[in-house]
Design a protein around this nucleic acid. Structure first.
Lengths: 155, 155
DNA sequence: CTGTTGTGGATGACTAGTGTCCGCAATATA
DNA sequence: TATATTGCGGACACTAGTCATCCACAACAG
């Protein structure tokens, strides 16, 4: 899995901690976690397109959450960066080779595909059950204070 | 996710269907699903190393299940091929950059890592709950007959 | 108008997955 | 024991996706 997921999750959680939904510049965001700014830009763009973050150009611009942190879950962030395609894709090999089944014999979905899909759904449900707000609340409050202090210093 | 997972799951399920745990040659296995035999060999080797399949060399040799199909679950097969490492790996970016936390401040695991790990566990639990025996039982019996017929013809 | 900031595309390096090949080891049969 | 068959293991290309950077363009505040 792409490390951009970790970046996106951390950035979204961080943006949920700034007071009054203030905007944070990309440079500041990158420096806060020691990330390469040009590449981080790519992932932030994906998050904006997925309506997880909002971006404002120009001076006093930057990034912020597009919605209330209670309305954004971890799956939103992960899918924005990794895409929503399931990790497992059935190639229907049961329809190939000497043991091939005809298309009429394959009206029922492949049992292996079903099992993998079920596992994928369990994974997605787990991520969907956690919101960005949950993530911030699980942080010790002195960590939240630390983050806000770092972000607002020199502002 | 590697397509070898699909191959391994199908092959394990197929081997569970042959009567008396008879061995099936690699060539036969590859032809049954129209797979490239040399590459399939790689994945079969991994399954043997993981004690999912057993292999016998020489004439009358081939592959069979290493254990009873009730004692092999889907996760065993997936991990044998994909490895057991979780898809998400935390790079601890909270300890880097201007917002870095000191190692003493990071005694608690990263909340984002926790969430991803929890989702990963849900995925693994889902796969672990399904055995190879379950997979064969979910197949229509005329499919099982079809597979056995194809495998035993010319034998 | 001007400087600041994000957007989108083009580009390249690097890693992992895909696929093949060949010599070696193991085994059943004559 | 000799031989043919079969799986094992490593070496080798090819491909796709990730990682990373750069630059011209658009949007915006003072």
């Amino acid at each position: 899995m792409s490390q951009g997921v970790e970046w996106g999750l951390h950035c979204a959680t961080l943006l949920a901690q700034v007071p009054d939904g203030a905007l944070v510049r990309r440079e500041k965001l990158a420096q806060h976690y020691g990330l390469p700014e040009p590449y981080l830009a790519k992932h932030l763009q994906a998050l904006v397109r997925a309506d997880v973050l909002r971006a404002v150009s120009g001076p006093r611009g930057g990034y912020g959450l597009a919605r209330a942190p209670e309305l954004i879950n971890a799956l939103d962030v992960v899918e924005a960066i990794e895409g929503s395609a399931p990790a497992f894709t059935c190639k229907e090999i049961r329809q190939a080779g000497t043991g091939a089944l005809s298309p009429e014999q394959c009206l029922r979905p492949c049992v292996i595909n079903s099992v993998m899909t079920q596992a994928d759904n369990a994974w997605r449900s787990s991520l969907r059950s956690v919101t960005i707000a949950d993530l911030t609340h699980r942080l010790p409050k002195w960590v939240r204070k630390h983050n806000v202090d770092v972000l607002t210093e020199g502002a």
